[in-house]
């Protein structure tokens, strides 16, 4: 960080991290306060959470301090569309598994969306590639390793 980057403005990223750490610390203290079982000998189950919570609070305050001083390193500008494509790909994968569409479709969705995030536009070709990859993994897992992957309509064909 160059000293010339010191601006009177508050560094939003550092502020957000600081507040997040304080929130995590508060959550930990609240959760720990609700614990009822104690240890008969030695130190109890609350000591470690309180120590970690205290540490998080301290780090949160230090981040707040950093927010008005140096701030965090400024990252490169973000290609938001790419990131959004990848996140929706992963979300689609989770939805496919959660709602019973099976692993092969889930893999195809994630594969296509990620390839799109990296600039590919041949969605159909990538979809086919993703399906093939999902199918290959599925067959290896179920037929060779006898691990069960999430089932869906496609999986029942094999």
């Amino acid at each position: 960080m160059m000293p010339s980057n010191r601006t009177p403005r508050v560094d939003v990223a550092a502020l957000a991290v600081g507040l997040g750490l304080l929130a995590a610390s508060a959550m930990l203290f609240l959760d720990t306060a609700g614990m009822t079982v104690t240890a008969v000998y030695g130190i109890g189950p609350k000591a470690m959470p309180y120590a970690v919570g205290g540490g998080l609070a301290l780090l949160g305050l230090l981040h707040l301090l950093a927010a008005v001083r140096d701030g965090l390193p400024r990252p490169d500008p973000m290609d938001a569309a790419s990131v959004a494509w990848m996140i929706s790909g992963l979300a689609g994968l989770i939805a496919c598994v959660a709602f019973g569409f099976g692993f092969i479709l889930a893999a195809a969705v994630a594969f296509t969306a990620t390839a799109r995030a990296f600039g590919r536009r041949a969605l159909l070709a990538d979809g086919a590639l993703g399906l093939g990859m999902g199918l290959g993994i599925y067959l290896i897992f179920t037929k060779l390793l006898t691990l069960t992957l999430p089932q869906g309509p496609l999986e029942r064909l094999f």
């Binding site: 390839a115 995030a117 590639l129 993703g130």
Partner: peptide, 20 residues
């Protein structure tokens, strides 16, 4: 694009394999 798409699918696979 394919490398990272493949990495993502493999990562999901590893996760599902340990706990679907």
């Amino acid at each position: 694009p394919w490398l990272y798409a493949g990495i993502l699918v493999f990562s999901a696979m590893g996760t599902v394999a340990t706990n679907p």
